[in-house]
Design a protein around this nucleic acid. Sequence first.
DNA 1: GCCTGGCACTCTTCCCATGCGAGTGCCAGC
DNA 2: GCTGGCACTCGCATGGGAAGAGTGCCAGGC
Lengths: 338, 338
Amino acid sequence: MLSERRLQVLRAIVQDYVGTEEPVGSKALTERHNLGVSPATVRNDMAALEDEGYIAQPHTSAGRIPTDKGYRLFVDKLAGVKPMTAPERRAIQNFLEGAVDLDDVVARTVRLLAQLTRQVAVVQYPSLTRSTVRHVELLSLAPARVMLVLITDTGRVEQRMVDCPAPFGEASLADLRARLNSRVAGRRFTDVPKLVEDLPEAFEPEDRGTVSTVLSTLLETLVEENEERLMIGGTANLTRFVHDFPLTIRPVLEALEEQVVLLKLLGEAKDPGVTVRIGHENAHEGLNSTSVVSVGYGSGGEAVAKLGVVGPTRMDYPGTMGAVRAVARYVGQILAES
Amino acid sequence: MLSERRLQVLRAIVQDYVGTEEPVGSKALTERHNLGVSPATVRNDMAALEDEGYIAQPHTSAGRIPTDKGYRLFVDKLAGVKPMTAPERRAIQNFLEGAVDLDDVVARTVRLLAQLTRQVAVVQYPSLTRSTVRHVELLSLAPARVMLVLITDTGRVEQRMVDCPAPFGEASLADLRARLNSRVAGRRFTDVPKLVEDLPEAFEPEDRGTVSTVLSTLLETLVEENEERLMIGGTANLTRFVHDFPLTIRPVLEALEEQVVLLKLLGEAKDPGVTVRIGHENAHEGLNSTSVVSVGYGSGGEAVAKLGVVGPTRMDYPGTMGAVRAVARYVGQILAES
DNA sequence: GCCTGGCACTCTTCCCATGCGAGTGCCAGC
DNA sequence: GCTGGCACTCGCATGGGAAGAGTGCCAGGC
């Protein structure tokens, strides 16, 4: 167990290193923080912290920098979440309120988050699977061609083309539309399969094939989690960390292009609150020198999707966590209103 | 007017510089290309080319590199478009044919283009304004709330919420839906305003307000060109040009985030064929050291949107132009089929 | 008149030696 | 257990060559 003062020393190291981006030495520490002890004492503490693996020296006889383990301790025990100021909160709200549709909400959220944190922002579209159905629309485009449009309570719209095994009359289509909506409107996606199970039986034999085809397309659309989309922004902020760069920026950009990677990344965070994954805690190799701060958001009390930022492990954790949490909260409000 | 040999020298300089990424000297030139003359002669030619502004020296007594003007001459007069090989064409077609919907087509196109050219790819969604209406759907979500869904021939779907001034019955809604579709289905967007002009008059006075509201929302959606979306990919390729880095990559990343900038960029290219804008020819300052190769694509003979790549002025123009042209052609085919 | 080989000159780049400064570890003393 | 002092280690910036690539120009040849 580390003594209280040693924890303070670690906190000071993290803060200074995040601020200056340079390894911090014992003398500088005592000057900038009044720890009430001399540099020599701090040196002893630093040696102990290094033994425990919380800090490291980039080169012999340079200052110390925190390790992933050090940041972890800092985030868990030494720092809180820095709340946004009232003006900041107002600005967030104002900015998000101007949105006209779901795409716009997501786009604005990305911009906002990137600006607030000055890092790369990632926002997942509200997931289909955790939403409820608002309406299912069927349009006949040709005698044996139907377009299926699914509208969710979060405002998301998915469409699919269905090629029917047999021509399908307008009357049958209207019938199917009505029956379908009366069963599934307002229900959760996960409940839909059971609710429509026996629907084909209500139709004439010659229409059953088509009804089944439409229904299976609908179920596919519901299940298809790979359809989970996301938007990213603020990649230009990566260039702020040019020190270690060319070597690290490349894999990060590549990882950011792989939506699958990002979705997995966000998905891993199970915590109901703000989740922080530091450096090597991220499974993806390209992100080993970055941290991911993420949180779920949703229109009700329940999270329907995640958002977060990706930045260097050397980031302002309290501020970033505050910004991420605040943005998630306000996006949730906006979605609930629309 | 430059002599034939001097043009050859310029072509050789461009090719070598693109290949090696290093200023090219007179000796190296004569060794790699058999121009049939000695380095000294080439030096004279180079001096002339420099006087004319086609090439420049980064530092006194280093090799020469092409200027924007030099690349321009190269593209216009000295190089053709390098056609894709048959296997490449097959690969393009195979890759694009797997797409399930419009989003997927665009996403695949971006990936493909980025991979082929190893540069940043930009693909604009098929523009609403140049498309035709496939279907307009109206859904009643609440007594005085209607959702308008617009489906285009390119498979794009736009939805808008409409708050009605008065409650609007299902029967009236069905009536409006039918009348609207019979008038606009299959017509070009630009023709729609005239076609629906007198539609409110066909309704009962108490419904006219709502009909007008719905129609004006529809027209807004049609006009709203800022809704033109695009997708970009391959930003990781920017890191291949690490030489001049932090300084040039930053503004480029920033420019790429500004969809408005990119749309304007693509929009400027009016040429029916492949358009190349080199360095300072790009209005946006952040892109002054990049070139943009773009071309229109569309389902019929007509272009409904643009796609292209952004890369350093030092790029393989013939190859890039070939790739861009080929991809545009195949995307057009795919869109026509769906 | 144009091309060629030769030559002197210019710069950039690389390398190495040197000195400085920041920071450390350890120790004796309070 | 804290403190001041001290010797030591390295990284980094500085400056001076030396090397190399490339140029411009000139005089001579075809």
